[in-house]
Design a protein around this nucleic acid. Sequence first.
DNA 1: AGAGCGCTTTCTGTATACAAAGCCATGTCG
DNA 2: CGACATGGCTTTGTATACAGAAAGCGCTCT
Lengths: 242, 242
Amino acid sequence: MSSTWQEEVAAETRAGGRISDRFIVDKVRNAVLTQRLPPGTRLPEVALGDIFGVSRSVVRKALTRLAADHVVTQHPNQVARVRAPSIEETRETFGARRLVEGEVVALLAGRLADTQLDAIDTLVEYEAEAHARGDEPARIEHSLAIHHLLADQSPNRVLGAMLTDLILRTSIVIALYKRAGLSSCYLAEDHPALLVHLGRGEGEAARRCIHDHLLALENLLDLSARETRIDLMEILGQKEVS
Amino acid sequence: MSSTWQEEVAAETRAGGRISDRFIVDKVRNAVLTQRLPPGTRLPEVALGDIFGVSRSVVRKALTRLAADHVVTQHPNQVARVRAPSIEETRETFGARRLVEGEVVALLAGRLADTQLDAIDTLVEYEAEAHARGDEPARIEHSLAIHHLLADQSPNRVLGAMLTDLILRTSIVIALYKRAGLSSCYLAEDHPALLVHLGRGEGEAARRCIHDHLLALENLLDLSARETRIDLMEILGQKEVS
DNA sequence: AGAGCGCTTTCTGTATACAAAGCCATGTCG
DNA sequence: CGACATGGCTTTGTATACAGAAAGCGCTCT
């Protein structure tokens, strides 16, 4: 994960895989999630094309898909940029996720097979261990895996897909607005409690649990007054891609 | 609306507007909504390009966006086709929309300005009039306008955008699975009742109202056993675009 | 007659060329 | 000194050419 894109491209081509728009989408999305590409970063098509060894056609397709996923912004005749959701949008994204993920876990309660419950349990343990040893990237990865698993297992696939999208968007804004002094957005009790409710089939309790979890997470962020933060980012954020 | 695409293209170019991907997206989406393009219809890039007088580049971008909107399917090295949601997905789409639109109207209750309430009231009347004179396309148009207005006015813009998407998707499956004998999916009392609750600020009543409305709508559809219906459509639906 | 195989046609995937729009810095005029 | 015009430079928009994959068609062999 610490390697450069060029190295990953070389590895991919050696492995026989051809570089497609999907590859670029994944790489850019991960880079945004891990804040290697801060909001406002310019993403010129030729530069990306050179990095990934493809022409602008493929890059353009990738950028269009990233724009549909709300990861980048595309304005006509202007360079694509990493999106910087406003504080207002951040609150609304959390609100939407509370609604959707709450419904998903309510539907899911009592319907998960034991193997799936065990899988979540394992991830919860991994997350706790990663937090204990101070490995924040690993902790985030496991936390995301838990929520993605819930989204994938949603009995309602449409809601599941919407939840997948919302998980991505909340992750981006968490990275963006994480309070400076805070090393980690970790709430030790929430995931184990959710797991218990899911196992016992307590749908409404699970809904409340995830609702409060996401509310607590939102309150850990620095969504205070100064709107200037992202405005300046958008206007002055001229950092180059590499 | 009954003119051909070529005529609309000519009108657009005469008006000075250039044909862009957005134009194509709108036209194809409307054609799908009105079932002029039935599910499974092949959408070859060159054919669309000829029709709209642009090259494949623009068409490809439009198709990518339509795929992101769940209007068409795109598989590698295969021609794009108008999507045919399964019965299962239809139920799940309605479920998702009940959740999201319920929350939106709950948030909206008591917050709408009088002018906006009047606008909805006017649309409700138009819808009733169109139904009375048997003009089903006009009735659908006004009904859609009501729901789109709710989505646009949502205090939570993220939820609003999700609702816009779900309105489109439910409209598609309504067109697909409308019971053969039924001339109209119209429930006379529902929209006026919703309007009353919105005006009085009765959020939970509005939520229940829209929930029951959508449930009744879903039950008007022919979602009975034979899954073969869309499978055959997908496999055998080889109708040409024009 | 039916199954399998290979050819041809159609369509998409990708790269590239050219045109147009935007951005930035410089210089000029008020 | 500041505002504005203008030039080049960068970047995107669009069309087109060529290569490769998929689907349809007919042929042959059994």
